[in-house]
Computed example of a mutant assay.
Amino acid sequence: MKINIHTLTINSFLLSIFLLFTLVPWLGYLPLGIFKITLMPILFLVSLEVFNLTTKTNLISCGILYGFLFGLSSLIQSVLYPSATAFIFINPLFSIVPRILMGTITGLIAFSIKNVNFNSLIEKFFLCFIATTFNTLFVFLFVYNLGPIIYSDQNELFEIFSWMILLTNYLPELILTALIFPPIALALKRIY
């Protein structure tokens, strides 16, 4: 990744938006009972798009970087605005690691399809599907498989919570991402 004033400025701007979405209640994480619907996959994808359009940097490293920021925002959100399940996401294994994996895979797929002659809108919807699906899938797999091992006294809670994440979060997050990200991405492409 080339580091210059342009790159630092863009990263600083995107980091400040991540902080805004993390620190302002009801902006990046919308409480829904004991769960929170997150708008962070949208911000993750917009950041990936902006960084790629402006710096032509490798999308895989961008995916890792912004996946890390997404995970860190989840951890900070759980500390600052705890819900009944915040103790799960205070652990970086459940908040940061799944998002880094999601960012890596999304960046890899975005890098792979960048040079294919896809319709731009279809590509953006596909990236929405990939980012949201892998975010939910990795969080689900980590919570379902590692939660009972780490918190052995609460096995049933983790099994129920894992399935509730899948049932309550996935579809709303996918719909919101698919509605918001593609128009923003197409507008950014016209600007750059």
Rank of each mutant, 00 (worst) to 15 (best):
K36R: 14
I122L: 15
S162W: 07
S152H: 12
V79A: 12
T22K: 10
L176Y: 09
L146R: 07
I17V: 14
R190Q: 07
G63K: 06
I17Y: 00
F89K: 03
K114Q: 12
T85G: 04
I175Q: 05
L65C: 09
I113M: 07
Y66S: 06
L69S: 05
T106I: 10
S83D: 07
F158L: 06
L14M: 13
N58V: 09
F87P: 12
K189N: 10
L171G: 00
V50C: 07
N52P: 03
P182D: 11
N119L: 04
F118V: 01
F87E: 08
P31L: 04
L167R: 13
L8D: 01
T85Y: 11
S16L: 10
L174A: 03
I191D: 00
I122P: 01
I105H: 03
Y151Q: 01
L30T: 06
F89A: 01
L72Y: 08
S83L: 08
I113K: 08
F18V: 14
G107P: 05
F138W: 11
L30M: 03
I88H: 02
N91F: 09
H6W: 01
L141I: 07
L75P: 02
I76G: 09
L167Q: 12
V50P: 03
L14V: 11
P172R: 06
H6P: 00
E159S: 11
V50E: 01
L48G: 05
G71W: 04
P182V: 13
E49S: 07
L75H: 05
